[in-house]
Amino acid sequence: MTATLAILRREFLSYFFSPLAYIVAAAFLLLTGFFWYLETSWLANPQIAPQLNPVSHTLFSGVLYIFTLLIPAITMRLISEELRSGSIELLMTAPVREGSVVLGKFLAALGFFASLLVPTLAYVMFARQYATPAPPDMGPIWAGYVGFLLVGGMLLSIGVFVSAFCKNQIVAYIFTAALVLLFQLIPTFTRVTTESDTWLYKAIAAVADHINMNAHFQDIGRGILDLRHILFYLSFTALFLFGATLTLSVRKSR
C-alpha cells in the first residue's frame, strides 16, 4: 500500500510538471468548451430549445468521443516510458509488487483525469445561472460526473494495459485509441446488421450490446445509477489493470 501511494504521488505530481499535460488539458477544455458553447447557443434559441433534451444530456453529449482522443495521451507514457528508458528494470527489482506499480500509476492518471473535469464545473454554473423556468435538475448532472469517472477509469485502465506492452509511446497511443474506439464501435454491430434468429448472431449481439460503453453511460447521464452500469465499468477496469499486472510480471520473470 505504501509503495502504491508513493508511486501514485510521484506519478500524479509528474503530470503537473509536464508541459504536455497542460496541452492535453487545454485541448480537452477547448473541445468540451466548444461543445458547451454550441449547446448554450441552441438552448438560448427559443425555436430550438424546446426540442432539446434535458440540460444534463446536453452537457455530456459528445464528451465520450473527446475521451477517445485524449485519454490515450494521458496513459501512453505511464509504463511505456519506463520500458523505453529501462527504468522498469529498477522498478521490477525493487521490493514493489507489479500490482502496486500498475495501481499507483492508474490512480495517478485517474487523479489527473479528475482534475481535468474540475474546470468544466464552470459550465454547470452557467447552466444554473441562465436556465429557465427553473435551474436544471442537479441529480443527473452529478450522476454524469460520477459516470465520467467510471468511464474515464475504464479507458485509463485500457491505456495502462496497452502501455505495459509498448515501448513506443506513439504506438501505445494509437493502440489505446483503437481499443477505446472498438468499445464504441462494436456495439454498432447490432445497428447495422439485419437481425437473425441464429444463436451465433444472438450471442454476438448480446455481447456487443452489453459492451456498449456509451449506452451504459447514457443511463447515468439521465440520472440513473444502475448497478449493472457501475459493475460494467469497474469490472472492465479491474480486468485491464489485472492484464497490465500480468504483463509486468511476465517481463519481470524474464
Binding site: F16, F17, S18, P19, L20, A21, Y22, I23, A25, A26, A27, L29, L30, T32, G33, F34, W36, Y37, T40, P119, A122, Y123, F126
Partner: peptide, 17 residues
C-alpha cells in the same frame, strides 16, 4: 470563457511550467 479563457489558461500554465 468556455472556448477561449479556460483552454488558454491551461495552455499558458503549461508554458510557464
Amino acid at each position: 470563457i468556455s472556448v477561449v479563457l479556460l483552454p488558454l489558461g491551461a495552455f499558458l500554465l503549461g508554458g510557464v511550467v
